[in-house]
């Protein structure tokens, strides 16, 4: 036990003056993390591994609106969890800070896109992994471009995407930066080879023929749901993770939560039947977590207005936290199992 460090947060509240109700937070932040201004110097000084950045941007969607409320609900749902994860034996406290939301100018998408790009760049320059919660799927275009520019032309990046739709429209009604164009734009980044791209979860008919044609033209490997039914989630994710992580210098990880079955995630902009079950998503987090680090995590298309009992935002939070926990375990950052609550009481 390191006497300089506090361990009380690993345990049930001790009572007395410290007997706070865990559901009465002060500032509403991701996992009760401290708020740090979205500035490279401030992030560097803090030394956290992850920076949560909300992106309430809804002007890249072609279907149902509502994803701009995603970051707020994500933060609220994160309050329902504590920092200790017994399945992994790790403590997430101190790993993350919350940089608030990127301020969005309404009805000015060009300006908004540049702000998203700058926000992600600011976090990356501090050597911190951004956890970006949207917002619609088009924000991935800006965030991936920021990662690509940050590592530079001499380095290689990989991209792993989860979603029901391939988002491979070269253009949609003449527009090139909408959510339906996300993977089309990302796969044009100069330091991203098609061999290092994988898409998991495609199904149903919001995947028009030009998506499939572009996937073939660019030699993109996508793993549709039918393949997951047959091979099982572990096998598929392991193969996809190898494509994205092996031989690359940076990795972009993107979750559009419509990858989940409509029953497991009703609160997304475009629910789709036939998707992943929650226990499959838990395995996804475990398997990716074996790789120890990731450069950017994004979560998009949460639409709390359609959610049911907070199910979807909670699943999204759980997935991100389990990913953080699995990575912490893989890095060997384990809590000293000898620490007991009675040690804390005795120290007081």
């Amino acid at each position: 036990m390191n006497p300089a460090k506090s361990y009380a947060h690993l345990f049930s509240p001790l009572g007395g003056e410290g007997g706070e109700n865990y559901r009465a937070p002060g500032q509403l932040t991701f996992l009760r993390a401290p708020h740090v201004p979205l500035e490279t110097a401030a992030l560097k000084a803090h030394g956290a591994r992850y920076a949560f950045v909300g992106v309430p941007f809804d002007e890249g969607n072609v279907g149902k609106p509502g994803s701009e409320d995603g970051p707020r609900e994500f933060r609220i749902a994160s309050q329902e969890y504590l920092s200790y994860w017994f399945e992994f034996g790790v403590d997430l406290n101190g790993l993350a800070v919350d940089c608030g939301d990127v301020p969005m100018p309404k009805v000015n998408p060009d300006s908004a896109r540049e702000r998203i790009y700058r926000a992600v760049t600011t976090v990356l320059k501090a050597g911190v992994t951004p956890i970006i919660v949207g917002g619609d799927r088009s924000i991935s275009i800006q965030a991936a471009r920021a990662l690509s520019d940050h590592i530079g032309a001499g380095k290689k990046m990989g991209c792993l995407h989860f979603g029901a739709h391939l988002d491979l429209a070269d253009s949609w009604a003449g527009e090139k930066l909408l959510s339906t164009c996300a993977l089309a734009r990302i796969t044009e980044l100069p330091n991203l080879a098609s061999a290092n791209v994988a898409h998991i979860g495609a199904r149903n008919s919001m995947n028009p023929k030009d998506y499939i044609d572009l996937a073939k033209a660019r030699d993109l490997r996508f793993y549709p749901m039918f393949e997951i039914y047959e091979r099982g989630i572990d096998d598929v994710v392991r193969e996809a993770v190898s494509k994205v992580w092996d031989g690359t210098d940076a990795q972009y990880l993107s979750f559009n939560f419509n990858v989940m079955d409509a029953s497991a995630a009703p609160g997304v902009t475009a629910t789709e039947p036939g998707g992943l079950e929650s226990r499959e998503m838990i395995r996804v987090a475990d398997v990716i977590g074996e790789r120890k680090t990731v450069s950017v995590i994004d979560v998009t298309e949460l639409a709390p207005v359609y959610d049911v009992s907070g199910t979807t935002s909670r699943l999204a939070v759980c997935t991100v936290l389990r990913l953080m926990a699995a990575m912490a375990r893989a890095r060997g950052e384990l809590v000293d199992q000898k620490i007991r609550r009675s040690d804390i009481t005795a120290a007081q």
Partner: peptide
């Protein structure tokens, strides 16, 4: 399962040798 299980709760099962079948 999941992260609303602070460490003292898990320690109870370890320290008292109570059988625990987690969701996994």
């Amino acid at each position: 399962r999941n992260g609303l299980n602070p460490k003292d709760w898990h320690d109870f099962f370890v320290d008292n040798e109570v059988r625990l079948l987690p969701m996994y």
